[in-house]
């Protein structure tokens, strides 16, 4: 216990938690995007997959709990770290501080994260609970998706959210390797090819779906 506490108390430890919880979510996102892409193969496959998930009963809930726990830890750590850096520099520079090398992604981790959270809430109501869905059919994700993206506002919100997710991963995937002390020394420490590719793929995979639906490719 005391060891976990030690981890939790220190700013470096919090980053470790942040990274681990983040990576759990990353894993989920990858399966999730792949599953979602099944919509392009018509209703059968994706609904079957969903049915299978819901069929596992216990396992699904375990997964949900793990994700929920990870999310809570992730958010708490993130908020606390944000508070610490606030506390570290109560008064800023009168003439401002000019970022030199930090990426937009790194600088939007906090607000981007908040946006992702917002998205999550809406998204669950949209596709899992259904209350935010005009014509929700329990157990028919294909239908729900295919009919869920006719409202341009919804589509726009998704696209923005996906951009946030993409950016978040672009920095997160790279930085988590360092937070966990796993990345090996590099002559160009700021390079992050793997993170770039991964973030792009996830972003693309998610983004094309609302577009495809809205454009009527998926109906």
């Amino acid at each position: 216990m005391s060891r976990l506490r030690l981890l939790w108390d220190s700013s470096v430890g919090k980053k470790v938690i942040l990274a681990l919880s983040g990576l759990i979510w990353l894993a989920y996102l990858i399966t999730h995007v792949l599953a979602n892409l099944l919509v392009f193969q018509g209703p059968v496959k994706i609904n079957a997959y969903s049915a299978f998930l819901h069929g596992t009963g216990g396992a699904l809930w375990v997964a949900r709990l793990v994700l929920l726990a990870a999310l809570l830890l992730h958010i708490t750590a993130a908020i606390q770290l944000a508070a610490r850096s606030q506390d570290a520099r109560p008064t800023g520079y009168a003439a401002g501080r000019k970022p030199q090398v930090s990426t937009l992604a790194s600088r939007t981790m906090r607000w981007g994260g908040a946006l992702i959270l917002l998205f999550l809430v809406f998204h669950i109501l949209h596709f899992t609970v259904g209350t935010a869905h005009p014509d929700f059919v329990e157990g028919n994700p294909y239908h729900n998706v295919a009919s869920g993206f006719h409202n341009p506002l919804v589509v726009a919100f998704y696209l923005i959210a996906m951009a946030a997710v993409g950016l978040h991963l672009y920095h997160g995937v790279w930085s988590s390797g360092r937070s966990l002390g796993m990345s090996s020394p590099s002559p160009h420490p700021l390079r992050r090819t793997v993170a770039l590719v991964l973030a792009l793929l996830v972003w693309l995979g998610f983004t094309i779906i609302p577009i495809a639906v809205y454009a009527g490719v998926v109906r």
């Binding site: 108390d9 220190s10 030199q100 930085s175 937070s179």
Partner: peptide, 18 residues
């Protein structure tokens, strides 16, 4: 570092540049 009220590291990379 924490006791002295320094912030944590988000891996911005600005330090290395400065």
């Amino acid at each position: 570092m924490d006791i002295e009220h320094f912030g944590g590291c988000t891996l911005y990379g600005e330090c290395q540049e400065a």
